[in-house]
């Protein structure tokens, strides 16, 4: 068993390291619009790795991730403005957002399925209102500048490194009893309770973890971007994040990366003017979901299995 688990870890962590290095190269290489898109893709991947615990492994459709993302971005910007050292501001921003995640979890982890989705959507609606209207803190609808906490080089390294470490942490945690409990919740929550799995607490931990990932991604995003505005953290973003996990392949290690790249790429490519773009995007997402209910990675995985079986039997 140890030999096979070592191989399994190597097969997952090797590509994770490669992706992390590639992200760093792209972040340094791209400027302007391409750089902006790369930043979004990397920070979304970090945020979505957290969401992948809740939505991916536990099967709970959360629409709160953009709130956590924004929470980290805004809190760190505000704290930096108050003269806190960058590391402390970042830590407090992540901690504060995890606390918000704890409240969200305590309230909504007792609900299931669509009720959980509606509850977390409500939370995002509230945070969007706060980001937009608490102008003294957030700068209002136009957003606010973000003070320089980390030097740019450090921010780029942190972005690429967090992407890799985040994915690695996901891979390792998914193999622990925490991961097993989350999968049991997804499969049959009642049976899990019969077996004594503390389902409410397991879900709560997953939500707090996802808030932490989202907030840290927000801190780094704000650092690189230099400006934070409410339009980056609305319900629409939360919904796109939710879609990204589904399109990538819920619960799979690289779903956050594949989903982020596809969703962000498509939103850039599909540009038919306001209103029409959203309708086209919606149609594309529905089509992908119908054709590939287990996401792009699910399709690729099935293809790979077929090729391998053929190679073995031939």
């Amino acid at each position: 068993m140890p030999a096979s688990s070592t191989a399994r870890h190597a097969a997952a962590l090797g590509p994770v390291a490669a992706v992390s290095v590639l992200a760093h190269v792209l972040l340094i290489g791209f400027q302007g619009e391409a750089g902006q898109l790369t930043l979004l893709a990397v920070s979304w991947t970090i945020a979505l790795t957290g969401l992948n615990f809740v939505q991916g492994i536990a099967g709970y459709p959360s629409l709160a991730q953009a709130s956590f993302f924004g929470g980290g971005a805004y809190l760190s910007a505000i704290l930096l403005d108050h003269g806190l050292p960058a590391a402390l501001a970042a830590a407090l921003a992540v901690g504060g957002t995890m606390l918000a995640g704890l409240v969200v979890g305590l309230v909504f982890s007792r609900t299931r399925g669509q009720y959980f989705a509606i509850g977390t959507m409500f939370f995002t609606a509230v945070t969007t209102l706060v980001f937009t209207n608490a102008a003294d803190w957030t700068g209002g609808p136009d957003g606010r500048p973000v003070g320089l906490g980390f030097p740019l080089d450090t921010t780029l390294l942190l972005l690429a490194g967090s992407l890799g470490l985040g994915l690695a942490a996901f891979h390792l945690l998914a193999g622990t009893r925490f991961g097993a409990r989350l999968r049991a919740v997804r499969e049959d929550e009642d049976l899990a309770q019969h077996l004594g799995v503390p389902t409410a607490r397991v879900k709560l931990v997953a939500i707090v973890v996802s808030a932490g990932f989202g907030a840290w991604a927000g801190v780094l995003f704000a650092q690189y971007n230099g400006v934070v505005a409410p339009s980056q953290f609305t319900f629409v973003q939360s919904f796109l994040m939710f879609v990204a996990i589904g399109i990538g392949g819920a619960g799979r290690l690289f779903a956050p990366l594949v989903g982020s790249v596809l969703v962000l790429g498509l939103t850039q490519l599909v540009n038919f003017g306001p209103g029409v773009s959203q309708i086209v995007l919606g149609a594309v997402f529905i089509a992908v979901t119908l054709v590939a209910p287990h996401g792009v990675l699910g399709v690729l995985g099935a293809l790979w299995d077929r090729i391998r079986t053929k190679a073995v039997t031939a």
């Binding site: 409990r181 049991a184 499969e187």
Partner: peptide
């Protein structure tokens, strides 16, 4: 429990491991 035997999407081993999740 009756009629609720296993987690169908989990492997047999993962099913067993949930039994000792604590």
């Amino acid at each position: 429990p009756e009629n609720r035997r296993l987690f169908p999407g989990l492997t047999i081993e993962d099913n067993l491991l949930v039994g000792a999740h604590g």
